[in-house]
């Protein structure tokens, strides 16, 4: 426990240092946040245009889809803000910077995560939270303390699901395996399929996205619960999946770490 507290304290320290470093390039940071927000905003604008023609998709109205979209985006931002340098691990592996994380008395993963924050993803977070707030008003969500707690936990759980898949995939980069294509694929599946009611894809796709790559658990299932479209008791356990998946992902990371080859012998 003391070790966890120490790791957290040092993580904050490292992250503050990296932010101080990054903020020296103020304009770059500001543009990053802004472009993140615009990028995600256009994603939703597309839905808005589609919904102009079809007032409902698989029984979901615009406000409801906006809620789903906002939930997915918020979870995504919460995953990427701390995980950005894991996402970009190939850089630190290729230029040998990863070596230094192995030379210091702190979990290398914590040091890697503390290397750089996903500052641009604060733009995602902004859009995500705004969408959630506006959409829950328009969709007439009957908020109760229990439902708010469920929603918050589901967002964290959703972030953890994305974190788990990202971590497992990126740990392959420790063996100098290029995971760029797979990472883009993962990003795409989570954002393109995770942001819409799963039903519109139907059949096999829906099944795959629920049981194989459980994108449905990030936002579709939890938002169905919040919007009163789903009230099976097992759906309430959706936030747990992220917690369950993170552990094996971490074990894969640990395993790949022993295969780390460094550069330039």
């Amino acid at each position: 426990m003391a070790e966890v507290v120490r790791a957290l304290r040092l993580y904050v320290l490292l992250q503050r240092a990296s932010a101080r470093g990054a903020l020296q390039y103020r304009l770059n940071t500001a543009i990053g946040v802004l472009s993140g927000a615009i990028w995600q905003g256009t994603g939703f604008a597309f839905i808005w245009v589609v919904m102009h023609t079809f007032p409902s998709l698989a029984g979901w109205g615009l406000a409801e889809i906006a809620f789903l979209y906002g939930m997915r985006l918020t979870a995504h931002a919460l995953a990427m803000i701390p995980m950005m340098s894991v996402h970009d691990i190939h850089w630190v592996v290729r230029n040998g910077e990863f070596d230094r994380f192995l030379l210091r008395p702190l979990n290398p993963l914590v040091q890697l995560m503390g290397n750089r924050m996903g500052l641009a993803q604060f733009g995602d977070l902004l859009v995500g939270v705004a969408l959630l707030a506006v959409a829950s008003q328009n969709a007439h969500v009957g908020w109760s303390p229990g439902l708010i707690a469920f929603c918050a936990l589901a967002i964290v759980g959703g972030a953890l699901i994305e974190t788990a898949f990202l971590l497992a995939l990126c740990s392959l980069s420790l063996r100098m395996i290029d995971t760029f294509a797979l990472r883009v694929f993962l990003d795409d599946v989570f954002s393109k399929f995770g942001s819409y009611p799963m039903k519109i894809f139907g059949g096999v796709t829906e099944w795959l996205l629920t049981y194989v790559l459980p994108v449905a658990f990030v936002a579709y299932i939890p938002s169905s619960v919040v919007l009163g479209k789903l009230d099976t008791p097992w759906a309430l356990a959706a936030p747990l999946l992220g917690v369950i998946l993170v552990w094996p992902a971490y074990l894969i990371w640990r395993r790949q770490l022993t295969h780390y080859q460094s550069v330039g012998h």
Partner: peptide, 16 residues
Amino acid sequence: GAGKSTTIKILTGILT
């Protein structure tokens, strides 16, 4: 390329 750095990296725990 004689193996110096590799040895150092093993001694320091970077490589297994």
